[in-house]
């Protein structure tokens, strides 16, 4: 899938889609959209990027392991729910504040951070699945390792092992 067109379009497309995903996430409370859809759009964007430039490029671009992003999202969502304890209201009660930022009243709420958590979990988990599968199906094998001639089904592993030293976090 390393076509020239895809490689040319992919960065712009990914950037646009990521931007759009954040837009969809933030407007979700009053217009169609929300964390689930936003997360899926972002995951698709990264999947496209991965198809064009390989898994390694996506991992480098993300900086964190996708599962860590998902974990952070789950943590954020739980925290948004737990915050209500400080105010003596039941778990998951929405809390709103209206700070004035630059003379503009900005409504902020725990439901927004909760939705952000949903977004991150969906993004992280699905990117993680997609990358794992893409990585598994990549067939870039250095000649040195072909010499050991393992059975065909082990082929994908090779790409992974090669990358492992670059990304030690990903091994465990």
């Amino acid at each position: 899938m390393n076509t020239l067109i895809l490689r040319t379009v992919a960065p712009a497309l990914t950037a646009l889609m990521l931007l759009f995903s954040v837009f969809v996430l933030l407007r979700g409370h009053n217009e169609p959209g929300g964390g689930f859809i936003g997360g899926l759009i972002a995951a698709s964007a990264l999947a496209i990027y991965g198809i064009a430039f390989g898994v390694g490029a996506v991992r480098r671009a993300l900086r964190f392991h996708p599962m860590a992003i998902a974990g952070a999202g789950l943590f954020l969502a739980t925290l948004s729910g737990l915050l209500s304890i400080l105010f003596g209201v039941p778990f998951m009660t929405g809390l709103w504040v209206y700070p004035r930022i630059l003379g503009l009243e900005v409504p902020l709420a725990t439901v927004i951070s909760f939705d952000l958590g949903v977004y991150l979990v969906v993004l992280g988990s699905i990117v993680s699945i997609a990358l794992a599968l893409e990585q598994d199906s990549e067939t870039e094998i250095p000649d040195a390792e072909v010499a050991q001639a393992p059975p065909l089904e082990q082929v994908p592993l090779r790409g992974k092992r090669r990358r492992r030293d670059r990304q030690p976090r990903e091994t465990r």
Partner: peptide, 24 residues
């Protein structure tokens, strides 16, 4: 349904990988 779609997708992905690994 919205949450069901996302969950069934992740379930589908899991089953897909399970099928793939079982085959291997």
């Amino acid at each position: 349904i919205l949450t069901a779609i996302v969950i069934s997708f992740s379930f589908f992905a899991f089953l897909l990988v399970l099928t793939y690994r079982a085959y291997q």
